[in-house]
Design a protein around this nucleic acid. Structure first.
Length: 661
DNA sequence: TATAAGCGGA
């Protein structure tokens, strides 16, 4: 759950006795455009041209005697509060100047709303309250708040909010809250944004659909699934969600791999006569393909077609990819060539994906044809296009053609990247052109080009395969004191090459120097230590990673649970499992099963049983796998009766399970 | 809404 109070934000607020004078005023100096002429407004009526009269007419409900445009112009030329005051003080009721009426509150609010500069709008607000005696007005505050947020002056905005609420005793309305919360969401300050929801409750302002959707989308973007889901259930309790709200929470579910819940929600939508649209299907299909669940993607796609939901570019791209992964090149090809008839123009991603599918199917002729077709049709090719095509030539052992592509792309102004280089180095290595590969690699290293772990490893592998062990060893040795290569890259390569001591040594250096900016470095170290049964080190890396502020994925959690299990530190394992669960981490089945095995290993059969039941009720867990794991836990503890009981349940359930699949 | 490319292959 999200926090329900404001303390996290309090340091941003100004002191509670926030008199307006205590706010920090900082005016943008406008010296260059500053004009001392303060007479512009003096008697606007006499100076008005015909054109101005028409514009004036537009504001007939306002103070007719004052030309708002001229007044604004004059205001925009003030640089200090004193100048501003001298301009506006002519309108003070206390000064009976030539019978001109004081400006009405409504006029002042409109004037404010037309003033985009936060400092000046703030000064006008202060003038209104402190000098001119206007009553505190919420619309006026809303305008200044909006200006402050637009110019990213968060402390000022929060100070204004605090002030209007406590010193001025105004109750914020839905404009106040939606301005504030949507701006905070825009700056990715989710927790701060959420901290205003309880205040809205207290002020009886109902968050609307847009506000909820903004927050749900932000929570998803930050990877905080549990907050997104709890926001959605809160939304559902207060207003009926619209298509956009449904789609945004479907996105959350799909990315978290909760496809069953997503399908449930889709049927809810249909029954609320909000039939799933292109975005709904697109979101789900992309997530399925991302998780390698191609067959499910295929069946969802055919459902989409049968319901006559229009396709879009993403859907086509994702499905061509899925067909390709399933070795269904023919279907991919057919979809590709019918896209235009279905009203979708193929894009560069479509062509690139189709190229890869042809390549995987060893349809080199088709790939080359498509590649040249792109050029004839003037489809903008990019580095991915070239990298894909090079790989295709590489696989058909045409290393000359692959090499030519590097020159061709350069000529067209498409810069090769690390992937281009590792592709070509690998191709040359396989073609026996080790010399050429080494030369390129050397050039890259000395030119200061970005060398990433895969590129470096590619060269090592080329040397090794050519039997040039000494060269390979030298490259590995160089990583102890990397030049032109980041320490993170060095660690990743050493870890992947299985060099435990060297990797550990450089890793320590890199962590101490604060040079580990990428979670994959921690991941490769954890894998390395785990492979080498250095469980204590696995736990250390995990701790370091948490200290560095990185959030582990499911695989890393499984790895660290395994390590603590091997060290018989079951409490620590359980603590991590609980902590991650509370943080809203959505585990893969493997993590749950790992935890269950650990409970078995410490002979906590009570724990095993309650976990088994909990997981059994969870629709996202593979039930067959769960039963097998549980049975295995009992077997290892020599509790064969229990194991048999669990296995018996599988057989009873299996008929149901087929129905679900 | 957010899709495409590199090592290697136990």
């Amino acid at each position: 759950m999200y926090s329900t109070s404001l303390p996290s934000a309090s340091f941003l607020f100004f002191s509670s006795s926030s008199q307006s004078s205590k706010r920090t005023h900082s005016f943008t100096p406008l010296s260059s455009s500053f004009s001392p002429s303060k007479k512009v407004w003096v008697n606007p009526t006499t100076k008005r041209t015909h054109h101005q009269r028409q514009r004036q007419h537009h504001h007939h409900y306002l103070d007719r005697t004052v030309d708002m445009d001229s007044l604004l112009l004059s205001l925009s030329q003030t640089t200090t509060p004193a100048e501003l005051h001298s301009l506006l003080s002519a309108f003070l009721p206390a000064v009976p100047s030539s019978g001109r009426p004081p400006l009405s509150p409504r006029f002042m609010t409109t004037l404010l709303s037309r003033e985009p500069d936060p400092a000046r709008s703030l000064a006008i607000l202060d003038w209104m309250h402190d000098l001119a005696g206007y009553p505190p007005s919420l619309p006026a505050y809303n305008v200044v708040l909006r200006n402050a947020l637009r110019s990213r002056r968060l402390p000022l905005a929060l100070g204004l909010f605090d002030e209007l609420r406590s010193s001025r005793a105004l109750t914020p309305d839905r404009f106040t809250y939606s301005t504030l919360i949507s701006s905070l969401s825009h700056s990715s300050l989710l927790d701060l944004a959420l901290s205003f929801l309880p205040l809205m409750d207290a002020d009886r302002v109902l968050p609307d659909l847009v506000l909820f959707t903004t927050l749900i989308t932000l929570a998803r973007r930050l990877g905080d699934h549990s907050k997104a889901l709890s926001l959605f259930s809160r939304l559902r309790r207060s207003v009926p969600p619209d298509l956009i709200a449904f789609n945004s929470v479907l996105h959350v579910l799909a990315r978290a791999g909760l496809f069953r819940e997503a399908r449930q929600l889709m049927s809810d939508m249909a029954s609320l006569s909000l039939p799933p649209d292109t975005v709904t299907y697109s979101t789900l299909l992309a997530a399925l393909v991302d998780r390698g669940r191609y067959l499910e993607a295929l069946s969802l796609f055919s459902e989409m077609r049968s319901r006559r939901v229009p396709l879009d570019l993403t859907v086509c791209n994702v499905m061509i990819d899925a067909y390709g992964q399933l070795d269904m090149a023919k279907e991919a090809d057919r979809l590709f060539w019918t896209m235009r008839r279905l009203g979708v123009e193929p894009g560069v991603v479509t062509y690139n994906t189709m190229l890869r599918v042809y390549g995987d199917a060893e349809l080199v002729g088709e790939a080359v044809h498509l590649f040249r077709l792109m050029q004839r049709k003037e489809i903008q090719q990019n580095v991915v296009t070239y990298n894909t095509m090079m790989r295709i030539y590489g696989r058909s052992l045409e290393h000359e053609k692959a090499g030519n592509l590097v020159m061709e792309m350069r000529k067209k102004g498409i810069e090769p990247n690390a992937i281009t280089y590792s592709t070509i180095i690998s191709i040359w290595g396989k073609a026996g052109k080790v010399e050429r590969a080494a030369k390129l690699f050397q050039k890259l290293r000395s030119s200061g080009a970005e060398i990433d772990p895969v590129l470096y490893l590619t060269m090592i592998v080329v040397y090794e395969r050519a039997g040039l062990v000494a060269h390979a060893k030298r490259l590995i040795h160089d990583l102890r004191h990397p030049e032109n290569i980041s320490k993170g890259t060095a660690v990743a390569v050493l870890a992947k090459a299985g060099r435990v001591e060297e990797a550990a040594w450089v890793f320590r250096q890199a962590v101490e120097a604060g040079e580990v900016k990428d979670i994959s470095v921690f991941r490769s170290m954890m894998d390395l230590f785990s492979r080498n049964k250095r469980h204590k080190n696995v736990a250390e890396v995990y701790e370091r990673m948490r200290e560095a502020g990185f959030f582990p994925d499911s695989e890393m959690i499984a790895t660290v649970l395994n390590a603590y299990g091997k060290m018989q530190e079951f409490d620590k394992a359980e603590a991590i499992y609980k902590e991650m669960e509370e943080e809203g981490c959505i585990f893969s089945d493997r993590v749950h099963f790992q935890m269950m095995s650990l409970m078995g290993a410490r002979r906590d059969f009570h724990g095993v049983e309650s976990m088994f039941e909990k997981l059994n009720a969870n629709p996202n867990i593979d039930k067959k796998e769960l039963h097998l794991v549980a049975a295995n836990v009992y077997e290892r503890a020599n509790k064969l009766d229990e194991a048999a009981r669990i296995i018996g349940q599988i057989n009873k359930k299996s008929s149901n399970m087929f129905a679900l699949q």
